[in-house]
């Protein structure tokens, strides 16, 4: 069972970062449990977590939502989802994860994140770790995304 202390930092960080970067307040849906850390979303930012808490966090969304978020972050409509657009989406995941690490640190869990990786495509299923995960659904003006948090204390 994942500790709630690992989840709340990501909920709080996602709200503060998205509100500042995307200009609207997210709405959180009901949390769901998964037996493992995986996603079948079309566009995913994967951040590794190391230290006293370990695992992965995946920020997943549709291609359309990724386009809309990148458009907001870049301040102009994107014609193609190029390297700059991908970098914007990856940086959103990086900023949320980084802020969550600060909150985890305040709660006594010293951790670090690895540079984010972006995986994009249709009909892709990413299975990463056998760590049980909690999925946080988020609704924004740009559309819906999910944050899959698969973390456990270091053994």
């Amino acid at each position: 069972m994942m500790k709630v202390e690992y989840i709340n930092p990501f909920v709080e960080a996602s709200f503060s970062v998205m509100e500042m970067v995307l200009g609207n307040r997210p709405i959180k849906g009901n949390l769901a449990m998964q037996p493992a850390t995986f996603t079948s979303q079309q566009c995913n930012v994967v951040c590794g977590v190391t230290g006293q808490v370990q695992g992965q966090v995946i920020y997943g969304m549709s291609l359309q939502v990724a386009d809309k978020i990148a458009t907001t972050m870049l301040g102009q409509p994107i014609k193609v989802f190029d390297q700059l657009a991908a970098s914007a989406i990856a940086e959103l995941g990086n900023m949320i994860s980084g802020n969550a690490m600060s909150k985890l640190s305040d709660a006594g869990f010293i951790c670090d994140i690895t540079p984010p990786t972006i995986i994009r495509g249709t009909n892709v299923k990413i299975s990463t770790l056998s760590i049980p995960a909690i999925v946080i659904p988020i609704t924004l003006e740009q559309g819906e995304l999910s944050i899959t948090v698969g973390l456990q204390g270091r053994k």
């Binding site: 990086n94 994860s97 980084g98 600060s102 640190s105 305040d106």
Partner: peptide, 25 residues
Amino acid sequence: CTAMGQKNMVIEAIQAGAKDFIVKP
């Protein structure tokens, strides 16, 4: 200029010689 704003990271950066610490976003 980083997304990582935890205290230990700030202290380590200042000890390394950084003159300011900006947290993203």
